[in-house]
């Protein structure tokens, strides 16, 4: 056990944790933020994607100690008012079915859009292939990412 302070969504969480614990479980069980999802635990599905100093990481295979001293952003902190261009596009296109995979989808898409403000379908396929959706909402995810790119251009908001 070690004392680790995690900065999640601009807030400090002083935690007692096994340093080997995956960041996912620190976020969910210790910080109590349930938006980040568990889907596979082995970096295969993308349900657990969060931003670590702005990079998309799979929190299920990221040791909590790696996040100490860095900025963690989860779906709850992507924007204060549910208004990040990706969130807005998701709402507009009404992307989800069950919705379980979409925290991870949205977090992956937000990084893609920051790096590639005008992603092609190919860029989207490459960047999003790590996020599984059993409900099969991929077409709408693609569409929503293009919509988010347009919104981002209009509003100048970046992920």
């Amino acid at each position: 056990m070690a004392k680790i302070t995690l900065n999640i969504n601009k807030k400090d969480y002083p935690l007692e944790a096994d340093p080997q614990m995956p960041l996912l479980w620190a976020i969910r069980d210790l910080a109590g933020l349930k938006g980040t999802k568990y889907g596979c635990g082995v970096a295969q599905c993308g349900a657990c994607v969060v931003h670590l100093d702005g990079e998309a990481v799979r929190s299920c295979v990221t040791k909590v100690i790696r996040a100490a001293g860095k900025k963690v952003v989860t779906i709850e902190g992507l924007s204060e008012t549910n208004s990040h261009p990706v969130q807005k596009a998701w709402q507009e296109i009404d992307v989800p079915q069950c919705g379980y995979c979409h925290s991870g989808q949205i977090m992956s898409a937000a990084v893609l859009l920051r790096e590639k403000p005008n992603p092609t379908d190919q860029d989207i396929d490459d960047a999003m292939a790590g996020n599984i959706c059993r409900c099969g909402t991929y077409l709408r995810i693609r569409e929503a990412i293009h919509t988010a790119a347009d919104l981002q251009k209009k509003t100048g908001t970046k992920g």
């Binding site: 349930k34 989860t74 998701w90 009404d94 989800p96 925290s103």
Partner: peptide, 26 residues
């Protein structure tokens, strides 16, 4: 639109795995 869309896009604890109470064991 899906009546829960905004909850989904902001990561609200909607799912079974998200449900939690004080003193809950795993």
């Amino acid at each position: 639109k899906n009546v829960e869309i905004k909850k989904i896009t902001s990561g609200k604890p909607l799912f079974g795995l998200d449900y939690s109470v004080d003193g809950m064991l795993i």
